[in-house]
């Protein structure tokens, strides 16, 4: 035990923090995409595990083909939008429950992503040979780029979800029956939301592949859980800090903060020399806990179990 603690170098943890922030920002961006479906449309969209990888694969392959990185990212966004469209149409046109539609698209994307990467599970793109938007070799630069992209996207969200169309998407998630009565095509709004969401997720996948210097067929596995972790951690902390002053700007900013915090926890866990293969289990437990907190909190205030113990107000 003493030997274990002696082997931990606190300075090493501090040194790995900036890298954690950079990656956290990229995951925060992906969480912003997930926020549209999970919170605004009230749908758990499992497409993202696939479309994150699609974004990475498209970006790397196009850069390797000589495209400038920014153009490659644009095509990646388009590919993500397409994936979201497929899920949306499976759901609205063919009546498949949203969660299953997402699973179907995600599964098919595994094959498609392999095809995009020329049937190899891993494609490297070296920052020495190509000009990349961000890279783990330049962490301060990557943090700055990540921050700028997140800020631009938050501003875009703030504008778009304030427009007539964006309001209609929000209303669709809140009350579909009302929307139909007000002449809103609920199906179109769902497809639109899924498309935009997956476009952003693919953008984040494209950034991640550049940061780590490769695209991997499994890079998106569990992306939805990480995204949910960011959304929920961000909401909990945002509410604790801002309370009722929390507005849409605040909510979105804290989603990104949630992504960064999540990744810093991961960095710390790795520093504690936990086996990195256990990370998914660890993530699932954390997200499970955060998802359960609102329920357990409400349950504590009003439950049958409490009455049984004689804890009722009349006892």
């Amino acid at each position: 035990m003493a030997a274990y603690f002696a082997s931990l170098n606190f300075l090493k943890l501090l040194r790995s923090m900036p890298g954690g922030v950079a990656q956290g920002l990229i995951w925060g961006l992906m969480a912003l995409g997930l926020y549209i479906t999970f919170r605004l449309l009230d749908v758990a969209d499992l497409t993202v595990d696939g479309s994150f990888t699609t974004g990475g694969a498209v970006t790397v392959m196009l850069i390797l083909a000589g495209w400038p990185a920014w153009a490659a990212l644009l095509v990646a966004v388009a590919a993500g939008v397409l994936a979201g469209l497929v899920t949306g149409l499976l759901h609205t046109r063919l009546g498949i429950p949203a969660i299953l539609a997402g699973i179907l698209t995600q599964l098919s994307l595994y094959s498609i992503n392999l095809r995009i990467m020329g049937m190899s599970a891993n494609k490297a793109v070296s920052v020495d040979k190509y000009h990349l938007v961000l890279t783990s070799r330049n962490i301060p630069g990557s943090i700055l780029t990540g921050l700028i992209i997140c800020l631009v996207l938050i501003s875009f969200f703030y504008w778009y979800f304030g427009t007539e169309q964006g309001s209609a998407i929000r209303a669709t998630g809140a009350n579909a029956a009302m929307c139909r009565a007000l002449g809103i095509n609920v199906d179109t709004m769902k497809v639109l939301g899924l498309a935009i969401s997956n476009g952003i997720v693919a953008l984040s996948g494209g950034l991640m592949s550049q940061y780590q210097g490769f695209a991997d067929i499994n890079m998106g596995r569990g992306a939805i859980v990480i995204g949910l972790a960011a959304v929920i951690i961000g909401e909990v902390i945002g509410h604790a800090l801002l309370g009722k002053y929390m507005n849409f700007y605040g909510t979105l900013s804290f989603v990104v903060v949630g992504g960064v915090l999540y990744y810093l926890v991961i960095v710390t866990v790795l520093w504690l020399k936990l086996n990195s293969n256990d990370l998914k289990l660890f993530t699932a437990v954390i997200v499970g806990l955060f998802l359960a907190i609102p329920y357990l909190r409400a349950h504590r205030k009003s439950s049958f179990a409490r009455l049984k113990k004689g804890g009722g107000t009349n006892a």
Binding site: G162, T163, E164, Q165, G166, S167, A168, L182
Partner: peptide, 19 residues
């Protein structure tokens, strides 16, 4: 006011004008 604005546009195309 957002609810009222949604109803004000009943049956109209919802574009990118402010909500």
């Amino acid at each position: 006011e957002e609810n009222l604005a949604l109803a004000k546009r009943r049956g109209e195309r919802r574009g990118l004008r402010w909500g």
